[in-house]
Amino acid sequence: MTKQTFSEHVIDVIQERRTIKKFKADSIPVDTIKELLDVAVWAPNHKMREPWRFLLFAGEGRKKLAEAIAADVGKDNKFESGILHNPIQLLVVLEEDPRQAVWDEDFAAVSALVQNFMLAAWSKGIGTFWVTKPFLYSPKFREPLGIQPGEKVIGMIYAGYPEVIPEPRPRTSAADKLTLFDK
């Protein structure tokens, strides 16, 4: 049996990824986003429930998202120009389960999927910004987009080629938050 070798590139991607808030106007091919989602779905998920679905807004489709936001927060809102400027917006939706333990497992799985997507995107030079806002809960926002009762929008992800990449912000060492039981 040969010795298995493992790449440390994932460590680099995790530590180098940044939240991007300013994107170039350049479009991203929808097929690229589909490829990134196909990587993201490898997130761990209990009993392979795959409790997610996606709404992708690209090109002229971004207007539909801007209209749904305006239906809740009103016209001339601060999100509309961002939606129309940023190349891609992706809503990640959780199919909610009424059993609390299953809901918790599914929420964790969908959150892991979002992280996978963001890391895969970064590895291809695409920046992301994971947004959660109150309008994601509003029926006025949800209904025009076909988001059903019993579904939770985990977040809206802006994606595009970075115009500005911020400097890293320091992290607290895990050792400072670790309680070790070794005896």
Rank of each mutant, 00 (worst) to 15 (best):
M1T: 08
T2W: 06
T5K: 04
S7C: 10
H9T: 09
H9V: 14
V13W: 08
V13L: 13
E16Y: 00
T19E: 07
F23M: 05
K24Q: 11
A25E: 13
D26H: 09
S27Y: 04
I28F: 06
L36V: 12
V39G: 02
V39M: 07
V41G: 02
W42R: 14
W42E: 06
W42G: 00
N45H: 12
H46F: 05
K47V: 11
E50D: 06
P51Q: 04
W52C: 05
W52S: 03
W52N: 04
F54Y: 11
L55R: 11
F57R: 12
E60G: 00
K63P: 01
K64V: 07
L65S: 06
A66D: 08
A66S: 13
A71R: 07
A71L: 09
D72V: 03
D72G: 04
G74H: 10
G74Y: 05
K75C: 05
K78V: 11
E80G: 03
I83L: 09
H85K: 14
P87G: 05
Q89T: 07
Q89Y: 15
L90C: 04
V92N: 14
V93N: 12
L94S: 12
L94W: 09
E96T: 14
E96W: 10
V102H: 05
V102R: 10
D104W: 09
D104M: 08
E105Q: 13
D106S: 15
D106H: 10
D106F: 08
F107I: 10
S111R: 01
S111L: 12
L113V: 00
L113E: 05
L113P: 15
N116G: 01
M118Q: 15
A120K: 05
I126Q: 08
F129E: 10
W130Y: 11
V131L: 15
V131S: 14
K133Y: 11
P134G: 02
Y137V: 12
Y137N: 12
F141P: 02
R142C: 02
P144E: 00
G146M: 03
I147H: 00
G150K: 06
E151V: 08
E151H: 11
K152T: 14
V153K: 07
I154P: 07
I154A: 14
G155Y: 07
I157Y: 07
G160V: 01
G160L: 02
Y161T: 09
P162N: 00
E163V: 03
I165K: 04
I165C: 02
P166Q: 05
S173H: 13
S173D: 14
D176I: 01
D176F: 02
L178A: 00
T179K: 13
T179G: 02
F181C: 06
D182W: 04
D182M: 06
D182S: 12
D182L: 08
